[in-house]
Each structure stands twice: as structure tokens, then as C-alpha cells.
Design a protein around this nucleic acid. Structure first.
Lengths: 332, 332
DNA sequence: CTGAAAGCGCTTACAG
DNA sequence: CTGAAAGCGCTTACAG
């Protein structure tokens, strides 16, 4: 059997209560006793049983994570692994552990969340995406269970979240293209059930607007999925109407399809992607892309949540992570 | 306060013991009582407290995972996320949870393993890589703690592991190249502290040997890291000696560097990679690569471990996952 | 088939 | 500053 607090107490000639207090470094224990206890722990190679502590403390110092498996581009887009890394780094600092689950569909996602919540396995949950009418968010709110969302939720009751300023990112980007002399700037975006898709489109529209260019709806395509094929088709569609001099996309995969179309037709069009995936620098030409700093998103999500769990809430319940435009040949 | 087994017992007019037995669906409980208890659980919306169960059962139904963070190509190579997905899928089936940690160096890795072991947080551990003189493996062995390794360990005491047949993979590949008429086949591999590097080199040598080609040591380069730069330099080195008609590499990133060198010099050389990363199909030309089926590796690792934990050991303590050669333009 | 009791290994309010 | 005792919410050998 493993050595317990009782064994330590016996050897140190104190009560288990005292040992417990030494471990948690709590209250007023004399240095003398502390040292005896430390020595005993050392000698017996004692390690606290985390599970027993969890039960007594009604807390696990563990965060739950749901990874949406449906994401086709889970492997091509390093977003999730980067975010997880950021989460992990902050959590480790604060001695929190992480538990995760892949979900293959929204129903699974909800049931994993429920399981996390009522089994008492985790102290808080990090949602890696925010959807319109997000069932998990609704449920967690209803249960008043601590959680944070990566991605600004549609409906911010009193929710903690972290996100980029997606509006600003495309606004800035489009401005830059206009400065370079582009007039006809097309936009290929994602499904509007994702709020970042909406925000990015808005940023684009605003920039066009403020620069007194005319907004040409035929230059805007909203796709269902982030695939090269969709990018390719969207580009084909747009070009039937008019050959733009720049194309802004909201995902690198879309941009890859666009580049392919452009190569085939030997057009000279500036193209930008989003997410700065590793693939982008290998494109022909290398793709300019907006880096969304996924690791920072994860890091700050963990930070907001853990601070909340420790009762040290930040003055604001959300955090904006800056994006960075990585310029490569495709906008030269 | 959350509802406990006692509340259910009270409502159902039975003892807590009985409720507990109904939950675990154990022993002989009459259907009548079962139904009363189920009804009570339903009414109170009772959910067992997992932590309390863990403590009483001395088991958490949780697996621990260490993700080596040092891997430069964590994002470019989807190995880890794919393996995690495989692990997760099998675990979910068996109602096991997963806990993970990123480690930034081997010392961290060991200390996370220790923490997993002695805190009783997890029932078993999955190591995502096997190194020569692997400290974690030694420690886990010493502690007789259940674990499985992805990657055949150098020193197989009585260790559970899953791996590809790396020898076979390159052997087969080189044979194929020879059949296509290649004579001077170069090899660019990784550091020999990884056993898969060794195995792949052996497979290459054997194929050359059996086909009665002469093994030219100057056509073999072992690099320290899997980077395009290393691939590029290695290729440069090799070409000083002789222009080969094919190059076998043990990682896609190496192959990317090789392709770059070849493009620059406009050589006509067949090239193969390893891991079939998403990047490979975007290369110019698209890269032929060996898919190592990382998800299957993870799945079977979890399977071996969980079966072991449940006392249903497989007759063999390891499992070989087949590779698949994905042929693209680079070997046309 | 079911219950009372002890136990899993901690923590902590209470008392001294 | 320290201890005895009760408690966290389950499980299970023992007894009936």
C-alpha cells in the first residue's frame, strides 16, 4: 500500500491534522513541527493522494476541454493544438491539470460538458469555439458552472471570453490593400453561424466604405466550409463577374484554392489568408496571412478562468488578443 | 448542495449501499428495487460524484498523456494530434478520460510522469515517443506503473508498445524505387537516438543489399532535426558527391528541403517523405510520402493499456500498425 | 436480496 | 500551535 498521511503522522509523532496543515502550508504551525514533518515525509517518500484531496476540498484543480472533432481541418489548421498548448502552459504554472475530450458533433459536445459538470471532474471548462445558439454555453450558463469561451459568444450574458478583434483585423488588412492601389477587392468568407466570420466581413465592408469604394456584393462569397475546393469555386464565381485585383479570405485553406485558380489562369491578383497555418509559407506564391495567435488565445482563456476560480476576477470578463499580419509574396 | 447517494436512498426508501449497487449495476438486486432507485435518481437528477468513486475504488478511469513540446514540428506534423485523437476515441468507448501535459524538455517529462504516478491521478500512462535511455520508461518500469509506449522502445523489458514496422516501410519503398529503375538512391534520415530512425535506415540498407546494388555511404546522411533546412543542406552535400536518381527521407520536412534544392537545380530526381503531413500534397511536385497512421497508433496504444488495466491482457504486449505509401508526383 | 458499518485519504471547524 | 472527531460521497466485506 501507498504511504498515507497517517504513516507520516506516526513517524513524526504528530496527528494527521498537523501533517495535513503542513502540506497545505496552512495556519500557524511551528517551524519545529514543520521540519519534523518534512523529514518524515521525505523519509517515507510521501506524496499526497490527489483524489482524496479533491474529495475533501470539493475541487480538482482540473480544467475540462472539448475539442470539436468535426473540424475537417483539425490537422491542417494548427489552431486547436496551439490553443491547447497555451492553455496548458498557463495551467501548469498554476498547478491546474487538463482533461480533454474529442467530440464529433454538437450533441456529443453537450453531453461531454454535462458529464464534466455533474461528475465534479473539473472545476471549470474551456470551450474552444463559439457557435450561434451554442447549446454548451446555454447549459453552462444555466448551471452557473465556471467556463470561458475562445471566440466571442453571440450572446454575452455575463460570459468570460477571449478573442481576436476580427473586425479590426480585416479592416486593417483591406485598408492596406487599398493603400497598395487595389480597387476591386473580393471577399471569401465562412459560414455566418460563426461570429468571427461575421466580424471579418464587417471589417471588410467598413474599410471599403470608409475609403469611398463601392461595395460590390458580387465580389463577396460566403462559403460553408473552409476547404480549398470552396475557395477555388468561389473564386471562379467571382471572376465570372469581374476579375478583382485582390482577394481577402478568412481562412488559409480558402486562399489555397484561390491561389490555385489564379495560377491556372495566370492572373495577377493579391491574395490573403487567415490563421497563418504552416502550409501558407509553402504556397506558390507564399501566402500572406493573418496570424491569430492561437496560443495566446488559449493562454489568456486559461488565465481568465483560473483567476475566476481563485476568486480573483479581472475587472473585465474578456480579453482581446492582437493579430499580426504576416506579409509574404502573395501580396507583393 | 449537490444531491448525493443518501438523498436518493432516502427517497427510494432503501440504504445507500443499495443505491450504490444499483449504480454499479452490481450483484443481485431485485428488479423491483432497481426500478424504485432509478425513479428516485431520475426525480432528483442524481449524478454520481466521480471523485468519491475514484477514492473508494482506488481508480480514476483516467489515462495520462505527455506531449513532448520540444518537438519543433508539433504544428507542421500532425502526428501528435492524430495520435491523441486515436487515443481519445478508444478511451471514450471504454469510458476512460484523458489528462495531458505538455513538457518542454525531458526533465519536465519525467517530473510530470512522477506526478501522474504518485498523485494517483491516472490509472495508466501513454508515452507518445520512445527515446534511447528513456528516463520515463525506466521510472515507470521501476514503479511497476501501467503504461504503453508509442514507438518501439530500445529496451523491451516487458513493455507494452505500438509502432509501425519502420524497417519494412523503407524496405518496401526502396524496392519500389529500384523497380522503377533507380540505381543511385540516397537516404536522408534523423538522429539515431530515435529507434524509428535506425529502423528506417536498416530497411533502406537491406533493400539496397538484397538487390545487389552497392551501398554508397556517401549517399547516406543522418541529420539532427527534421527541418527543411537540414534536408536542403543534406541534399547539397550528397550532390557534391554524386547526383542520385532518388532520395528517400524519413520526414516530410526533410523532403521539402530536398525538393527545394532540386527545383533550384532543375534536377530530375524522385523524392519520398515520411508522415504524409498535409503539407506534402501541396508541394511542387506533390510529395510521395509514407503515411504512418498516427491515429491507429494512438487507438491501439489506448487499447493495449486499457485492456491491461481491466485485466484482459492481450496475448502479445505490442501491436504493429501498417503503413501506407501515398504516391504522388514526386516519384512519377 | 438488502442493510449497518467501516473504510478510501484527505481537510477543517471546534476545542483546548 | 496542536489534536480528536466528523465529514467529503462513494464502495464493499460481512452478516442476515
Amino acid at each position: 500500500m501507498a504511504v498515507t498521511i497517517k504513516d507520516v503522522a506516526r513517524l513524526a509523532n504528530v496527528s494527521p491534522s498537523t501533517v495535513s496543515r503542513v502540506i497545505s502550508n496552512s495556519s500557524r504551525i511551528s517551524d519545529a513541527t514543520k521540519n519534523v514533518v518534512y523529514a518524515a515525509m521525505e523519509e517515507l517518500n510521501y506524496k499526497p493522494n490527489a483524489i482524496a484531496r479533491n474529495l475533501a476540498n470539493a475541487s480538482t484543480k482540473t480544467l475540462g476541454l472539448i475539442i470539436p472533432n468535426k473540424e475537417e481541418n483539425l490537422f491542417k489548421n494548427p489552431f486547436f493544438i496551439q490553443a491547447m498548448r497555451g492553455i496548458s502552459i498557463y495551467s501548469q504554472k498554476k498547478n491546474y491539470k487538463i482533461m480533454f475530450n474529442y467530440s464529433s458533433n454538437p450533441e456529443d459536445e453537450l453531453s461531454f460538458v454535462r458529464e464534466f459538470v455533474h461528475s465534479k471532474w473539473v472545476d471549470g471548462i474551456i470551450l474552444l469555439t463559439a457557435n450561434e445558439d451554442d447549446l454548451c454555453i446555454d447549459y453552462l450558463n444555466e448551471q452557473a458552472f465556471p467556463f470561458v469561451v475562445i471566440g466571442r459568444p453571440f450572446n454575452l450574458h455575463d460570459i468570460m471570453w477571449v478573442d481576436n478583434d476580427n473586425f479590426q483585423a480585416t479592416y486593417h488588412l483591406v485598408n492596406k490593400l487599398i493603400q497598395k492601389g487595389c480597387q476591386d477587392i473580393a471577399f471569401i468568407g465562412g459560414p455566418s453561424r460563426r461570429i468571427f466570420s461575421k466580424d471579418r466581413l464587417e471589417g471588410y465592408k467598413r474599410a471599403i466604405d470608409l475609403r469611398n469604394l463601392t461595395l460590390d456584393e458580387a465580389l463577396i462569397v460566403e462559403t460553408n466550409d473552409f476547404t480549398d475546393e470552396n475557395g477555388y469555386q468561389a473564386m471562379k464565381e467571382i471572376c465570372k463577374h469581374k476579375i478583382p485585383d485582390a482577394v481577402v479570405t478568412t481562412d488559409d485553406l480558402l486562399a489555397f484554392g484561390v491561389l490555385k485558380y489564379i495560377r491556372e489562369h495566370d492572373y495577377k491578383i493579391k491574395v490573403t489568408g487567415f490563421n497563418n497555418t504552416p502550409l501558407s509559407e509553402y504556397q506558390m506564391p507564399a501566402l500572406t496571412s493573418v496570424d491569430i495567435k492561437a496560443e495566446d488565445l488559449g493562454y489568456n482563456a486559461a488565465k481568465l478562468l483560473i483567476r475566476h476560480l481563485e476568486g480573483r476576477d479581472s475587472p473585465v470578463n474578456h480579453f482581446i488578443v492582437g493579430t499580426e499580419l504576416i506579409e509574404r509574396q502573395s501580396t507583393k
